[in-house]
């Protein structure tokens, strides 16, 4: 069975392009990877040479100017992506054929993969990195080199990417246009709330001197909103359900109902 379906799969690959746009996929993967490698290199070089004293002129040159540039670009990208996706939205969802819908689901997967990469770099890579930087260099500003990257670059990037994925689904995929997916809201809005929570975090750090404990209760807001990543369970279940409906007739199977939990 496995061998025969592999052969079928290879034959299809040779004859038809499939539903996935591979060029977009690899552009996303390469774009996120090389951009973040560049940022990591920038930290390596200018963190130590220009990022130790917030009152030094070189700090303004290399870190505050980086910060201001980020803010401008983030507002531009957020606005442009939202406006573009809305303006070019599908106005008659009933006219979307099953084949076109399947194409759009795969395009949506590329958006979701981009969101996954952005979440990884922001929530995992740069967040724990902030811990080791502040265990090494005492903070004398809210805009330390690690914060300029973590809070004000990587978090907005995943917010913008999540916003783009949500808007793509809402404006182009019939199932997401007819109602608002609760788990989609959770998985996009929850991590977004980590950014406003930076306000609490920085307020706390300026209020009193505290030992640089990562497990300090001041940080629990980040933890709570990090849990919202689990919203992807419901989101993927919704997508699986719809794709099963689309694919079921070709396979000669009806989608299996979800099993009951056993206790």
């Amino acid at each position: 069975m496995a061998a025969s379906s592999s052969a079928i799969s290879r034959a299809v690959t040779a004859e038809q392009p499939g539903f996935l746009n591979h060029r977009n996929l690899w552009l996303v993967v390469a774009g996120f990877t090389f951009f973040n490698l560049f940022v990591r290199w920038y930290e390596e070089v200018y963190g130590w040479s220009a990022g130790l004293d917030a009152f030094a002129p070189e700090f303004k040159t290399y870190w505050m100017n980086f910060l201001y540039t980020e803010w401008v670009l983030e507002i531009v990208f957020f606005s442009y992506i939202g406006a573009y996706l809305w303006k070019t939205r599908t106005r008659d969802m009933d006219a979307v054929t099953p084949r076109e819908e399947m194409h759009r689901h795969f395009h949506h997967f590329v958006w979701l993969l981009a969101y996954g990469m952005a979440i990884y770099w922001g929530a995992s890579f740069y967040t724990e990195q902030d811990g080791t930087w502040h265990q090494t260099v005492i903070r004398d500003t809210d805009f330390t080199p690690s914060h300029v990257i973590e809070f004000y670059m990587s978090y907005p990037i995943y917010i913008i990417t999540g916003w783009g994925a949500f808007m793509y689904a809402r404006t182009r995929i019939p199932m997401f246009s007819k109602g608002v997916s609760l788990p989609y809201l959770v998985v996009v809005v929850g991590p977004f709330m980590i950014l406003p929570n930076v306000g609490l975090n920085e307020w706390g750090h300026t209020f009193w001197w505290m030992e640089e404990l990562f497990v300090a209760p001041l940080h629990y807001g980040f933890v709570f909103f990090g849990w919202m990543a689990l919203g992807l369970c419901g989101l993927l279940s919704q997508i699986f359900e719809r794709i099963s409906e689309l694919a079921g007739p070709a396979l000669g199977t009806a989608p299996a109902p979800a099993s009951k939990a056993s206790y």
Binding site: F109, L112, L113, Y115, G116, M117, I119, Y120, G122, A123, S124, T127, E128, G131, V187, P191, I194, F214, V215, H219, Y220, F222, V223, G226, W227, M228, A229, L230, L232, L236
Partner: peptide
Amino acid sequence: FAFLVFTGGFHVHAMLTMG
């Protein structure tokens, strides 16, 4: 996608509660 998102959410949770 799921691996990356779970990694992000779980890592934030772990580093700030037992890191």
